[in-house]
C-alpha cells in the first residue's frame, strides 16, 4: 500500500487563484502609480477601502453562499432596502440603535426566509433569491418612492468621522466595521464546524449529509449570513450616501458576484477564500479609481473592464482545475 503514497504540492495550487488576484491588484495599482502622480499615495489606498467598505461586507456574505454552491441575487436589493428602512426609521424619530437593529433583523430574516424556501422546497437558489431581489426592491418603494435623506446627528457623525493614521491617511469607521466582518468571517469559515460544513456542502452536499453534518443548518445559515451582510452593507452604504432610496445599489449584486469570482472562489462551490473576495473588491475599486483618474474615459468603460477581468480569471481558474490530477 506504500505505493499509494503521494505527496502532492498542495499549497501553491490551492492558493493560486487568490494569489493571482493579489498580483492583478498590485499590477493595476502599479499601472496607476506609473501613469498618474499622486496615485501611489496612502490615501488612495485608504480610499479604496473607504469607497468600497459596503462592497467588502456584501462580498463576504456572498462568499459564504457561493462556497455552498448557491448564489444570492438579492444582496443589492436587500442593501437598498436597508438604506430605506434606516432612513425611514430615523425620519420617524426612532433611536439610531433601534433603527440599526431593525435593519439587521430584516436582512437576516429575509435571508432566513430564502434559505428555508431553498432548502425545504428544493427550489433553485437562483430563482428564490431573484424573487427575494424583487421583493426587497418592491418593499423599498412601498416605504417611499422618493429618496429619503438621513439627518440623524449620530449617523452623520459616524459617517463623517475619520480616523487619522500615521502619514496623514484617514479612514472612516465603515472601514473598521468591514474589516471586523472580514475577520469574523475568516474565523467562522476556518475555525468552526459551521464553516467546515459550508465547505463540505460545496464539495458534495449528499456526502456531507451522509457524514452526519448539520447540512440543513449550514445551508439555511449561509443565506442568513448573506442577508445579515447585505443589511450591514446597506447600513454602510447609507452612511456613505446619507440617504435611503429604492434605486440604491441597482446591479450591485453583479459587482459583488464579479468580485467574488475574481477573488478566486469557484461558483460550483467548495473552493475559495474570504481574503480572495476582499482582493476582488480591491481590484474592482482600483479599476474604478484608474478610470476616474483618467478623466476622459467614460464610466461605462468600468463595466467593460470588469467583464474582461472576469473572463481572464475564469480562464485562469479553468487552467488550474485542468491541471489537477
Amino acid at each position: 500500500m506504500s505505493t499509494l503514497a503521494l505527496s502532492p504540492t498542495r499549497l501553491p495550487q490551492r492558493f493560486l487563484p487568490v494569489m493571482a488576484t493579489f498580483v492583478v491588484f498590485v499590477i493595476t495599482f502599479g499601472v496607476g502609480s506609473f501613469r498618474y502622480e499622486g496615485f501611489a499615495s496612502g490615501q488612495v489606498v485608504a480610499n479604496l477601502f473607504v469607497d468600497n467598505s459596503f462592497l467588502i461586507v456584501l462580498a463576504v456574505g456572498m462568499t459564504f453562499v457561493i462556497l455552498t454552491g448557491g448564489i444570492d441575487l438579492s444582496v443589492g436589493a436587500v442593501a437598498a432596502l436597508s438604506t430605506m428602512i434606516a432612513a425611514a426609521a430615523l425620519d420617524a424619530g426612532w433611536p439610531p440603535l433601534l433603527a440599526v437593529l431593525a435593519v439587521l433583523a430584516t436582512g437576516t430574516g429575509l435571508g432566513l426566509l430564502m434559505g428555508l424556501v431553498i432548502h425545504h422546497f428544493d427550489v433553485q437558489p437562483f430563482i428564490v433569491t431573484l424573487a427575494g431581489m424583487f421583493l426587497a426592491r418592491g418593499l423599498c418603494f412601498l416605504i417611499s418612492v422618493e429618496s429619503v435623506s438621513i439627518d440623524d446627528p449620530s449617523f452623520r457623525d459616524l459617517a463623517t468621522g475619520t480616523i487619522a493614521l500615521p502619514g496623514g491617511v484617514t479612514l472612516t469607521y465603515s472601514v473598521l466595521i468591514a474589516l471586523a466582518v472580514v475577520l469574523a468571517a475568516v474565523y467562522v469559515l476556518h475555525l468552526t464546524r459551521f464553516g467546515r460544513t459550508v465547505y463540505a456542502i460545496g464539495g458534495s452536499e449528499s456526502s456531507a449529509r451522509l457524514m452526519g453534518l448539520a447540512t440543513t443548518r449550514a445551508k439555511v445559515g449561509v443565506y442568513m449570513v448573506s442577508g445579515f451582510c447585505s443589511a450591514l452593507g446597506g447600513l454602510l452604504f447609507s452612511l456613505y450616501m446619507l440617504s435611503g432610496y429604492g434605486l440604491h445599489g441597482v446591479g450591485m449584486e453583479l459587482d459583488v458576484i464579479a468580485a467574488v469570482v475574481i477573488g478566486g472562489t469557484l461558483l460550483a462551490g467548495g473552493s475559495g477564500y474570504v481574503a480572495g473576495s476582499v482582493a476582488g473588491v480591491l481590484v474592482l475599486g482600483t479599476v474604478q479609481t484608474l478610470i476616474s483618474f483618467e478623466g476622459t474615459l467614460s464610466s461605462w468603460w468600468t463595466k467593460i473592464v470588469i467583464g474582461v477581468l472576469l473572463l481572464a480569471f475564469i480562464a485562469l481558474q479553468r487552467l488550474v482545475v485542468r491541471r489537477r490530477p
Binding site: D122, F134, L135, F141
Partner: peptide, 23 residues
Amino acid sequence: PANVTLVFKALVVIAVCLLQSPR
C-alpha cells in the same frame, strides 16, 4: 405605483414555484 409591482411579482413567483415543487 409602478415600482411596487416588484413585490407582487416576487409573491407570484414564489407562490407558483412552491406549488410546483415536488417537495
